[in-house]
Design a protein around this nucleic acid. Sequence first.
DNA 1: CTAATGACGACAC
DNA 2: CGTGTCGCCATTA
Length: 110
Amino acid sequence: MSRADFYRKVYDVVAEIPTGKVTSYGAIARCLGVASGARMVGYALNSLIRDEQGGRYPAHRVVNRLGQLTGRAHFPGDSMRERLEQEGVEFSEEYTVNIEKHFWDPAEHL
DNA sequence: CTAATGACGACAC
DNA sequence: CGTGTCGCCATTA
């Protein structure tokens, strides 16, 4: 599997996250067969920002394994948190979602 | 080519 | 149970 394939698959998975659900970087990485690629998933999403068509991917639904919105700084203002709240995602902390309640496992979708 | 970095995660203390 | 370390690997300096 090439680097480009990995990136594309990450985007595919992200695009399929249901509204009101969230998943983690590590879960996506494992789902793609690269258990140690959690950081790469984050990097792939980071590149979406540069990418023009990046806006059409719900990258705000991807949080770390604890449900923390570690990527909020890459979104304008509090748009990441606002969008999640708007989708009905429950927060345990101001920047932490209830991931156990809203977790979406990419593996189940394959 | 080497070194530092990061939207992570597992494990040791 | 919070904090520190280390492994991870593409990307950038």
